Simulated scan of single mutants.
Amino acid sequence: MRSTAAVLTSMTALAAMSLVAGPAVAADTAAAGPCALTRTAAHHSLGVDTWNAAYPRPERTLNAVMVFLSFPGHRAAVTPRELTADYFPATSDFFERASYGRFRLVPHPEERWIRMPRPATAYGIQRDWAPEDRAAYLRDAVAAADPLVDFSAYDVVYFVADPGAPGVDSDATKVVNFDRPIVADGAELRRIVTVFEQHPPDRNVLAHETGHVFDLPDLYHRPTDGKGDWDTYVGDWDVMGSQFGMSPDLFAWHKWKLGWLDPAQVDCVRSGTSLHTLQPLSQAPPPGGTGGTRLAVIRTGPGTAIAVEARGSAGNDGDTCTEGVLVYRVRNEAASGGGPIEVLDGHPRTEACWDRSVYPPLADAPLEVGETFTVPGERITIEVADRTQSGAYTVKITT
């Protein structure tokens, strides 16, 4: 049994929580080269020169606890085991493939429902959740779970609500960050993933939310009036843009940030003309090999860069409907949801995959062999010269 003091400390910390970026604590990373954008104070900044030590870096095995919350007056129609199967092993497999085996996410589901003290309707659960209601929900959830869960044993915490309980809104799933960490069982909890999904849930939803736990930003565009298309920035091309995407593997830039690409796998493009052999992002490396170059970067300003990578129909991108060389712009001062990555459309006059794409205008964004693309507003030309028998693309870049 853990001490009552730990529970009281948790409750005190919860009283002052909110959705915040977290402390800008830096931990030096390996030399990232002259093309690496610096990390800024923007929430989930895509700078790669340092790592924010407030977040766990997924370069090793991390353990995640799943706590299943039920509510008075409602009997759950599914079991914790069934809900676990909604997310695992799919989420672990996604990260195993995306990281080329460098990261393993191990789930530890509680095999029981933990009863909340009030009905779900009492917490006003919704996408734009009132801070006081969100605080009450997490205060009650931590208090209910703490006698049964040793939070100090885990790197990631998922609170999974009974999907059938009245008042549970599937649009409210998100990561809640605390302005001051919760101390429970001697561990500092800086963020909790609150899951309110239906059964079965949205595809890849937990991979998306877990990406935030690792300091990755939202790449979708939320219209100010709540209407219109959310996927205009990156379309299908990264799970942080859409959990429904056909090609949800993480951008090479994200993999660089997370430590899944070695410096030798990132080409820093100098002025002039250069050739680059880019391996498709989702293609697993050969046994004992590094997998070759995965990203070419052209620095365009103090806080901006153009990234070039190859995408093929393998691994996490196995459901894609187009292949080729993808070009996108990265901005280190754009916050999560503010367009830190923007895919540049190699075929702006056409669309593709109307039956499956979340945003058909960008579904055919990649360049094919023989095509040339000039980056708008920049003196940068990208030509796809060839494709090797192994599937790699030979790309000529002129700056």
Score class of each variant (00 low, 15 high):
168 V>F: 02
191 R>G: 04
64 A>C: 15
96 E>C: 13
167 G>P: 09
358 V>I: 14
380 I>V: 15
14 L>M: 11
181 P>E: 10
181 P>F: 03
135 A>P: 10
14 L>S: 02
281 L>E: 00
152 S>C: 09
1 M>Y: 01
394 T>Q: 12
351 E>V: 11
369 V>A: 13
165 A>H: 10
264 A>H: 03
139 R>N: 15
380 I>H: 08
262 D>A: 13
173 T>S: 15
6 A>P: 00
24 A>S: 11
1 M>D: 10
192 I>M: 10
133 D>S: 15
127 R>T: 12
36 A>R: 05
134 R>I: 05
50 T>H: 13
104 R>W: 02
278 L>M: 09
365 A>Y: 05
270 R>T: 15
116 M>I: 14
248 P>T: 04
2 R>C: 01
379 R>V: 10
187 A>W: 01
186 G>L: 07
284 A>S: 12
316 N>F: 03
236 D>E: 11
240 M>G: 01
89 P>S: 07
378 E>C: 09
299 R>F: 02
116 M>V: 12
265 Q>S: 08
385 A>E: 04
172 A>R: 10
75 R>E: 15
244 F>E: 07
259 G>C: 08
51 W>E: 03
238 D>H: 08
286 P>S: 14
27 A>L: 15
360 P>W: 03
114 I>A: 10
355 D>K: 09
157 V>R: 11
294 R>V: 00
375 V>E: 03
153 A>N: 12
3 S>P: 00
175 V>C: 10
39 R>E: 09
223 P>A: 04
310 A>W: 00
3 S>Q: 04
315 G>H: 12
68 F>L: 08
358 V>S: 05
12 T>C: 07
209 E>W: 03
4 T>E: 05
139 R>C: 11
326 L>E: 04
39 R>D: 08
107 P>F: 03
197 E>P: 04
21 A>Q: 07
342 E>Y: 10
370 G>L: 12
230 W>V: 01
